[in-house]
Design a protein around this nucleic acid. Structure first.
Lengths: 233, 233
DNA sequence: GCAAAAGTGTTTAACATACACCCATGG
DNA sequence: CCATGGGTGTATGTTAAACACTTTTGC
């Protein structure tokens, strides 16, 4: 009775589902008044010589996030940054070598954590402006655009901007972070009101001096861990 | 000069990154005044006999989304539903058979698309209340909880409730969708005001009659495609 | 004194929240 | 006539948006 209707049996085959898994990391930072991403020049085929997102194959016993952190560290020398999973890309033809599925990660780092020169695999890692960068290998342009949208959305309802700023910063500096990410100006008075009433910041007793202008008060984030807000900008 | 400092060369090895890829689908619907998910009883080891999310291994030439739709159709007979990628789970020990990475998908369907009895592989597919369901195989409980949070968040700023409702529905019925998903009551007058001013619905010239109560006006969604709103509930 | 960015309030409109009673129908 | 859910409005508080001038410093 129960097994009378087995017209189209489905089986789990041993030799199906095989693929190679990579992670690729889109890591943003802010440098020289521009939103930038970190790219590496490929040393091997395919796309040898082209710029690509840092990333690589998973190892037997690491989680996807561990792979992402390891590859980021090995290829660019960057570590200790904010990292979250972005999206998984698995189109059959996205890699000419065969079926390669990539779990893309999204990362943010303040510029001072991006000291590229000193690190091992970093000879060919470089920051590029998001608005003007070389053509990327594979489907990395698509991945990068998705990461950018994630960033633009997420700073609306989280405190994530801490991960792009140094410990102490002025209100103008944090405003600039938002403006660069959204690629538009925001109103200074409304921005400050909002930012201060959100209660994420604590004022420091120092000021930024030495510029030929009025000194600016310095602030720091109360917590440098991920916080979601009820509503935001 | 450039290659003088190759202390720790990184290579892309041929035999690394291997894994099997599956997709698993968390599909929600509303039935008998409850938010439910569709589960299938496993026919094979591991976890033979346990309830699990529908899903399975990717084929050579399909995208991840195609895998999800195919598995959903084969295992439960359900097709033509709203589907989006949820998250990718790749812990090394999540599957006792070896390294299996799953790209989890999130799906929504109105109850009338969940006619399970008529379909091929559906003898062991069944709807369970989200609040009370059997213990799940693998890490599927974690996946389900993540999907539930996605659902609870996403109906705040999208028109996604169309995908849980029939073509025509009353305002009380759509309110019930929100209340079931959020597991809390909302104010009737405020809900209706909000829903109608959002402009997503068009009134139909019919009413729901035959119940021993005042007939309720019927509405339909203007568009049954994904729309993101600026803000919502 | 001047260039440059810091700092500061008010007004208006939109939206969120709280809340209670009458209406139309089928039985 | 009664049980059931359908249907409606107002008042208050909160948040968003628009908008321009004075202050402090280094040179």
């Amino acid at each position: 009775m129960k097994n009378s209707k087995v017209t189209k049996t489905k089986k789990e085959h041993i030799n199906t589902g095989n693929a190679k898994i990579t992670t690729d990391i889109v890591i943003f930072t802010i440098e020289d008044g521009e939103l930038k991403i970190l790219l590496v020049k490929r040393k091997y085929e395919p796309f040898k010589g082209r710029w690509a997102l840092p990333g690589g194959f998973i190892k037997e016993v690491e989680t996807l996030e561990e792979t992402a952190r390891r590859e980021l560290s090995e290829e660019t020398g960057v570590s200790g940054v904010y990292l979250e999973q972005l999206y998984t890309f698995g189109e059959p033809k996205r890699d000419p070598r065969g079926r390669v599925v990539t779990a893309a990660y999204f990362a943010l780092a303040p510029k001072h954590l991006m000291s590229l020169s000193a690190s091992s695999g970093a000879e060919d890692a470089k920051l590029f402006s998001v608005k003007k960068h070389p053509e990327l290998a594979f489907d990395h342009e698509k991945i990068m655009q998705k990461a950018l949208h994630r960033l633009q959305n997420k700073i609306q309802y989280t405190n994530l901007s801490w991960s792009l700023l140094p410990n102490a910063f002025t209100l103008s500096e944090i405003q600039a972070v938002y403006e660069l990410i959204w690629d538009k100006k925001v109103d200074k008075r409304n921005f400050r009101k909002k930012m201060l009433t959100l209660g994420l910041l604590k004022p420091l007793s120092k000021e930024r001096t030495g510029l030929r202008q009025r000194p600016a008060k310095l602030y720091a984030f109360k917590t440098k861990t991920y916080v979601e807000l009820r509503r935001f900008f």
